[in-house]
Design a protein around this nucleic acid. Structure first.
Lengths: 211, 211
DNA sequence: TTATATACAAACACACATGTATGTAAATAG
DNA sequence: CTATTTACATACATGTGTGTTTGTATATAA
């Protein structure tokens, strides 16, 4: 009834995204109606259709809110100041380990991120218009592998790892390990098999590389 | 009209599963109607409801057709005759490598298996009644890790790998690596990033372990 | 101060999927 | 050889979601 100011409108937009996330994680994307999302957000479908084109658009917005910040974080934690040799603590392998650790930590601490990952991995279908998200995922993976490779190249120079393999090979193996861990971590809602041991698994993975 | 014999009935049942797989992989599970599956199989919804309770039941049947054989294969390829020391070719690490290789090979050669994996990983939602499948997946993973651990224990005895880590740790790391690879392999429909290099990635992963 | 665009709510129109119930011809059991 | 079950096809009943359109009060621009 009462028209909202721009700030308030942005607030309801965010509110709709939050509502959608909670209903999605509970019922899955396709079995969730926009009506249900609107009700959970305390608005009507009119508001939803005002802020988003359709359910797919809403899902995209939700995904962007967690994926884009992650990509920003990557450079800082993996590569920033990696060149400054003067700092002896600047061990590339430890940097990699910390990056993986931090990513898991975000999932642990930040419910929104955790729920969004759960939706993206087990509660939505990559089909039709949403299929191109898969291309984005693959592209992001390449970017991650690239940065891991840079870090491993440094480790190679410092003779921290075996020279018989290439930095690219180490990077790909680590990336696949971490992809697997993320999938398992998200699926392990009980926490018994992976969530509680994630730190150990990561540490072991890195330790396995040190010669 | 013409009533079918038991054999023919089983044939239409399989035909429905095949039709469902092809429609699922194209449109996703939730956006596929039983009507569409029936039409694609050359029958009506009556036949579908005769053979399956509902769409979820059909999806379960489809999954079982590829997951159950995989579990059977595992023991043979990973553990069978692993004890017979007389055969010098019986290298536990090579056995592991071959098991991983064979699994990828099945996905490459067998379209039905490949499509089913694609559906299970990116074209269905693990929600409601289908959520318990996730528990089965986790359970299967534990079983795989166990068998990998047995193989790595042999490798440890033969001093093929570093003794500073445990067989369980190697097994978990390999399992996470392979989970990640499977996910990437399936998602990489272009084949450029992972499908073409899967063999190399596996070989490198194992080679990384040899001391 | 007025005109217009905004931020929704409410109402409308349409399609479509699901589950069940009924019909039926032939296979099979006895 | 008859009775019954099987393996479906057809028809029915119903709910539910979606996209769009219209209405409207107010923030905001001019």
């Amino acid at each position: 009834m009462v028209r909202k100011t721009k700030q308030e409108a942005e607030q309801t937009r965010q509110c709709i995204i939050n509502a959608a996330r909670e209903v999605f994680v509970d019922k899955g994307v396709s079995k969730t109606s926009l009506e249900e999302i609107a009700r959970h957000a305390g608005v009507t479908r009119g508001a939803v259709y005002w802020h988003f084109e359709n359910k797919s658009d809403l899902l995209h917005a939700m995904r962007d809110q967690v994926v884009l910040p992650l990509i920003d974080r990557m450079d800082d934690e993996l590569l920033l100041n990696l060149d400054k040799e003067q700092n002896p603590d600047n061990d590339p392998l430890t940097r990699i380990e910390n990056f993986l650790l931090c990513t898991i930590q975000v999932l642990s601490d930040h419910q929104e991120t955790r729920q969004t990952y759960e939706i993206m991995m087990t509660k939505c279908e990559y089909v039709g218009e949403f299929e191109k998200v898969m291309q984005q995922i693959m592209s992001n993976c390449s970017s991650i592998v690239d940065k891991l490779e840079q870090a491993y190249a440094k480790a190679m120079k410092k003779q921290l790892i075996k020279p018989t393999l290439t930095a690219a090979q180490y990077a790909q193996d680590t990336h696949l390990f971490f992809s697997g861990l993320l999938h398992m971590w998200v699926k392990d809602t009980d926490g018994n098999r992976y969530r509680n041991q994630a730190e150990t698994l990561i540490h072991t993975h890195i330790e396995m590389r040190r010669q």
